[in-house]
Design a protein around this nucleic acid. Sequence first.
DNA 1: TCACCCCGTGGGACCGCTCCCACGCGGCAT
DNA 2: ATGCCGCGTGGGAGCGGTCCCACGGGGTGA
Lengths: 349, 349
Amino acid sequence: MSPAEQPQPPRPVDVRRPTLNAVAARAGVGRGTVSRVINGSPKVSDRSRAAVERAIAELGYVPNRAARSLATRRTDSVALVVPDAESRLFAEPYFSEIILGVSAGLSSAGMQLLLVLTGDETEYGRLAGYLAAQRVDGVLLMAVHAEDTLPDRLAELAVPTVLAGRRGEAERLGHVRADNRGGARLAVRHLLAGGRRAVATITGPLDMDAARARLDGYRDALRDAGVPVAEELIAAGDFTEQGGRAAMRELLRRRPDLDAVFAASDVMASGAVQELRAAGRRIPGDVALVGFDDSIVARHIDPPLTSVRQPLAEMGRTMASLLLEEIAQRGTGQRGVVLPTELVVRESA
Amino acid sequence: MSPAEQPQPPRPVDVRRPTLNAVAARAGVGRGTVSRVINGSPKVSDRSRAAVERAIAELGYVPNRAARSLATRRTDSVALVVPDAESRLFAEPYFSEIILGVSAGLSSAGMQLLLVLTGDETEYGRLAGYLAAQRVDGVLLMAVHAEDTLPDRLAELAVPTVLAGRRGEAERLGHVRADNRGGARLAVRHLLAGGRRAVATITGPLDMDAARARLDGYRDALRDAGVPVAEELIAAGDFTEQGGRAAMRELLRRRPDLDAVFAASDVMASGAVQELRAAGRRIPGDVALVGFDDSIVARHIDPPLTSVRQPLAEMGRTMASLLLEEIAQRGTGQRGVVLPTELVVRESA
DNA sequence: TCACCCCGTGGGACCGCTCCCACGCGGCAT
DNA sequence: ATGCCGCGTGGGAGCGGTCCCACGGGGTGA
């Protein structure tokens, strides 16, 4: 039987790319020299450098990442972890825009971005070991809750980590967050400045620092204005539209006389709008409304929603640079960075 | 000078993790056997397998990915490429939801997801070589335009590739898309069924297949109903809100008597709403409106927008599985997969 | 002139895994 | 008893880089 007759096994198409060895041979130098050129070492003569660079260009050589990271024990890549429970939020600009910033910040440093969307709880539990074993150089962690222990486990494993938001006041790990408290304060001050006095708030889940901070800001603004804080004007939501509706309904029941609402997220505000409408209140005529996030829904809701903007892309970039610092020099990165928020005034308040 | 006195260089914290060798030693077997167990080879005795598994558990061993991929010439990771020009769309669920599906489809196969957001044109140009050199096992490409050559270059380099959407009817590469034409047809049929006769359309950029297909569907529906297609009822948009406004304005100028609009995206529909409102038309009283994408804005616009839904998460999952097939067995993956769209009726039509 | 230094350089020894070849051993047919 | 087969196994040889040590040669000072 001639070899041509037997059925060809699906031979693995491996288009071999040129190796560092090939470059060295072509340039007429040793491997070490090529490596030095690639890594920008100064101790290479101009002659050799030129020869190597020419060979690289001619062969279209690009170093093999796996080989390099095996030798260096670095991967030049970081993981961005988004817990699945939160992935509903993925539909909002929040994550997307942070990711955009992160990507920009990383790629300028030649780092790769590994996107890790975790499934169920158990998967999330295995994550620490997994991430350490993959030898990503660092981890960016989104949407951490107060009781989350993943960050600590990563710290134990000496994996540089930066959080989006902190778990609480005592956060020891590097993190980046918006000035939630200040933003909320701006929002409520704006409502008060509009002459409103019965200002309610719909909070986020209070096991998240951002939600607590926004509630604190609400209290701050009332205190600043000498308006007493009435507990029955505070209703708990969960950052979802449904939660916003339920909270708004509850607030209307408790205090039919309320004349303003600060919702700790636009999505909850959108739920509140529906409920207010159902109750026959006009916005902003009867009830003024301010949201938080300045997300895409804020612009498209009717009436367009006054909202607190956080600089998401910049937060992403900052996270990236904090992480890069920490990777380059452990224990160096700043602990917490707070970025300013601003009030975007539209028609709802 | 004693060594203790010189300033400590920032010693690289390298927490050595157990290697395959360590596992072999502990289990009292050879490296080959451990490797076989890890890779699920059947030719291992139960005794050895048990011993190895125990050792792995005790040491908390996880294989080093770099070493493995150096040896196998695989990376077990794929790149998801999102051209930056389109990243404004990133704010919409479109990308996010596809990514969610992709991630689900990949992680069940133990594959990693590398997110690559390209910056400017030149960066995009370098991408093919870059991706081939990184030895990602495959590439998922979003938002390809008709004249895009990146897919072809990847094909030349023998990198398995799957596109989200096709470049044109003659697409040779594997891709997944929604039934844009059918969806548009549904939308326009719905408008006609509502008694509308002067049905306009705002198209997307016609260098994208999805935009052309939606325009074709619009024509189909009119033809089905025996309504002649009037070219002045067709205005070009570009999938942006601004573009939608401009197109709507133009349409109102050309045909003040129009009584329905099919916008090829929700975002453009939202622009159209603003323009219609400014012109004093009521929706759907004077003008009925249908969008495309069923994005988050569709639900929050006033009035809530009737829109065509595409199964984004499923598209993502399908892209993942097509790519995995193609990676496992070159030339095997189905060329093009079309997923059904459906009309979500709300109040705008 | 000679010892010394330093600069640029080549190449050996890894990094941790997979692949594959060769070997030992027990069971079966002869 | 003897040969043979085949299963399970150990371990050598890469994969393609980096790191570092040792070495040659030109310049400098004595």
